[in-house]
Amino acid sequence: MTRNDPSTTQDAWLTDFTDQILNGKTDSLPADGTDPETRALADTLLRLKRAFPEQELDPASVKRMQARVMERWREEQEKSPRWREIFRLDWLTPSRRQQFGMAFAVLAIASLVIITAPLLFSNSGTLPASAGSETNSTFLWIVLGVAAISIAWLFRRKS
């Protein structure tokens, strides 16, 4: 698509017209200057502008709404169970929360390794009927991998 492309020209005409109506430079369709289809779209834009004129909230409404927001928030805070607050870690600063998360993840992985180590590193291959143990070992490695990925995902950075 180039600047001489008719559709690009029409796009530009329509956006210029939008700027004009929003800046209050015009409030009606120009007599000519573009094709009927683009004029029809310009008419839709005029309808939108007229239906939603600029409207500022009055200071009293702003204050009243703010009071209701704070009241509702406090009510919800009081209703919220204490254990949920603890698990949301709101009592920690964001940097501490991240450190806490990392420490928890390390502890969880370490616990999992300690619990499953005897099964993972058992010398099962020397026994004649060891096929089942090998399957168990592979399965446990998979479980460990999935657990590690899950923990990393749970404590990933969120914007």
């Binding site: 698509m1 559709s7 690009t8 029409q10 796009d11 530009a12 329509l14 956006t15 939008t18 683009t38 779209l41 839709t44 834009l45």
Partner: peptide
């Protein structure tokens, strides 16, 4: 601008 036109 093209997206805007299609949206309108």
């Amino acid at each position: 601008k093209s997206l805007f036109r299609r949206a309108v």
